[in-house]
Design a binder for these strands. Structure first.
Lengths: 198, 198
DNA sequence: GTCTATAACCTGATAGAC
DNA sequence: GTCTATCAGGTTATAGAC
């Protein structure tokens, strides 16, 4: 039952965010009523934290694994990561907006979630591995955050603006997917352009 | 008085978004009480639309003017636009998050606002001007949305993640500004890389 | 125009019966 | 465990006095 609730809550929270989601709405989706919800997760806050942890865990690890395959050429590694994110976001188009919204509503939340999920070591390994490659001159030496600004910015932008763009230019779902397939290659080549030594 | 209200409401709305802003909070900031607010703008919705229009008008036009200066080299044009946005966002760090959040909460809102503000012609001119340059072979021929995905993605990403990054890596305001000054050049060079013919 | 008072509603949360 | 009933608090919006 707890899992049924988390699964339903996940959908609603991702769609509307914490603030605009009410307990009664989740209860309706699950098929029970408000007090029953409060039995399983005492407060809305506790419930959201459970859902948020669930989501973060499904996003973070796969990416950092790919970052560390140093035997592969850069373009290959970038392509895998970009592929993974594009698939994830195509299946969950509102996930990028959700993450940004909650990151801004409560910046501590992500930090606490990351700490409690033991993914911090995986992240550190990936960071130092990349930094080494830069020091060795195999990659251009840039601040690591720039890599993330560039890659994530390009990755999430189409999804952050999806609804508005589709309405403004009467773009169909098929058109969107066609563009995304091309866009994927642009992201890879731009990230490589940022990291490759001339 | 209406202006005083819009000015105050603008601050609060940009900071917290539509959903998490209450009329009483705005009233407190202005220095009057709730019912007085409802006298000037009958509903919260009407008031928000006024504020939103005010914001859009202050963002859009300057950019498209710069896009059309075809006598200038590409890098010069891009640099001006990027400069303008970085200044705007540095002074209003939560503006990018605000725009994305409201764009997703109510996708029709932006469309209606744009229509009512008569900026649609300016946008169309800029678009066709760019498209011509692409057809003439002076710029690489890519879907126009890709230019926006790339430029805006890179422009807003540092600000969307500012609070979280500063807390996660205990980054000071000075450090942030230092990185932004360097990042600006990266954005320009990446956008040029996207548009320049080989 | 600006106030006080109040209506009507929705929220999260709890107590207690079954 | 899941329900009904209820509480306390906050929200937008309005009516009516000054």
């Amino acid at each position: 039952m707890e899992n049924r609730i988390i699964k339903a809550a996940r959908e609603v929270f991702i769609d509307k965010g914490y603030a605009e989601t009410s307990m009664s709405e989740i209860a309706t989706v699950v098929g029970i009523n408000r007090p029953a919800l409060h039995y399983y997760f005492r407060t809305k806050d506790k419930m959201f934290q459970a859902v948020f942890g669930d989501i973060v865990q499904s996003i973070v690890p796969a990416v950092f694994d790919n970052l560390m395959h140093r035997e592969l050429p850069l373009s290959e590694r970038v392509e895998r990561i970009v592929d993974a994110y594009i698939s994830l976001f195509t299946e969950n188009p509102r996930l990028p907006m959700f993450m940004m919204r909650e990151l801004n509503r409560d910046p501590e939340l992500l930090i606490n979630t990351i700490r409690s999920l033991n993914v911090i070591d995986t992240m550190k390994e990936a960071f130092t591995s990349l930094q080494e490659e830069m020091n060795e001159g195999k990659l251009k030496n840039i601040p690591l955050q720039f890599l993330f600004y560039n890659m994530y910015g390009m990755l999430i932008m189409p999804f952050l603006t999806k609804d508005a763009v589709q309405k403004l230019f009467t773009q169909s779902e098929e058109e969107f997917l066609t563009y995304i397939a091309i866009w994927k290659n642009v992201v890879v080549s731009q990230v490589c352009n940022l990291l490759e030594v001339q």
